[in-house]
């Protein structure tokens, strides 16, 4: 079980202190797929980095299985937005990297890496270098690399944001299948509500800066999911509405003061002129 207690974070910007995260408490039971959605720049990635141990919280603790997190560790592996594969290593060697750091013997490393490359369907490209792979393939390799470490928690920081829509849809299905097989605890950061509904058991909407958990949604549906199903579409719409308020707050802070979100404005199609030219 992953537990966050009273996490806060602020940073200095142009001499002023900006509160990035106001106290966040969260409990994630074993094997749950949790998504964090929020307006851009709200601090959801910062929160993920704190769980990963790459950033330090100002106050509060992250507990994994009752033990406090003090730094990066192999029990919490991150998949980043860009694949972050090492360009001087083949896909195979990239997957082996963490195993090598853990001191596994060569034979075992190689077998294990191949097994996970197979899981993400990259067996044929085991000996390719990252620059020879497409964006989607790189992200697959990064997922294999993270899973090969057999972490307690898989942290994903907008892993599909840089991919085209078709590749992303494919990887959604793939990730669902992998998750069903491995039953990892996953924390998934995204700004794509649809993606969150597709993948998660539980979705947390974060407020605009300073981030706090604004609202929580459960997605009590089996997998694989069809997002056109009314139940899921309804959840998606609710989350969108909850999120919209936060996005507007960000926009209001950033854009001109006269900006308002107009939802009722009717945009007439350009080929219908209702006879005004008679």
């Amino acid at each position: 079980m992953l537990k966050l207690v009273g996490i806060t974070k602020s940073y200095a910007s142009n001499g002023r202190t900006v509160q990035a995260i106001s106290p966040i408490d969260l409990e994630v039971p074993e094997g749950q797929f949790v998504s964090l959605v929020g307006p851009s720049g709200c601090g959801k990635s910062t929160l993920l980095n704190i769980v990963a141990g790459l950033d330090r919280a100002d106050s509060g603790t992250v507990m994994l299985d009752g033990k406090p997190v003090t730094g990066p560790g192999v029990d919490r592996v991150v998949v980043f937005q860009e694949a972050a594969l090492f360009p001087w290593l083949t896909a195979q060697k990239n997957v082996e990297f963490g195993l090598k750091m853990a001191g596994l013997p060569r034979e075992e490393r190689s077998v294990r890496a191949r097994q996970f490359l197979k899981m993400v369907h990259l067996s044929r490209f085991a000996d390719s270098y990252p620059h020879e792979l497409s964006g989607g393939m790189r992200q697959r390799a990064a997922i294999a690399r993270a899973l090969a470490m057999d972490p307690r928690v898989l942290l994903m920081d907008e892993p599909f944001a840089a991919l085209d829509a078709q590749t992303r849809a494919l990887l959604h299905e793939e990730l669902t299948a992998i998750w069903a097989e491995t039953r990892k605890t996953v924390i998934f950061v995204t700004h794509n509500v649809r993606e969150a509904v597709h993948l998660s058991d539980r979705i947390l909407v974060l407020s605009a800066r300073p981030a706090s958990i604004k609202q929580e949604f459960r997605v009590p549906a089996g997998r694989p999911r069809d997002l056109t199903e009314p139940g899921l579409a309804y959840i998606e719409k609710q989350i969108m509405e909850s999120l919209r308020v936060e996005i507007d707050r960000v926009a209001q802070a950033e854009l001109d003061s006269d900006w308002v979100h107009e939802t009722t404005k009717l945009l007439p199609p350009p080929d219908r002129n209702l006879g005004s030219d008679i």
Binding site: A52, G53, L54, P72, G73, V74, R76, V77, V78, F80, E82, A84, F86, W88, F97, G98, K100, M101, A102, R145, M149, L155
Partner: peptide, 27 residues
Amino acid sequence: PLWVRAAMTMGASGARLFTAVVLPAAL
């Protein structure tokens, strides 16, 4: 920094982080 962070989450630190990631990246 992304490579260094990725390596850190996979358990690399100190001298090993340097020889396995920083040096090849700087090569």
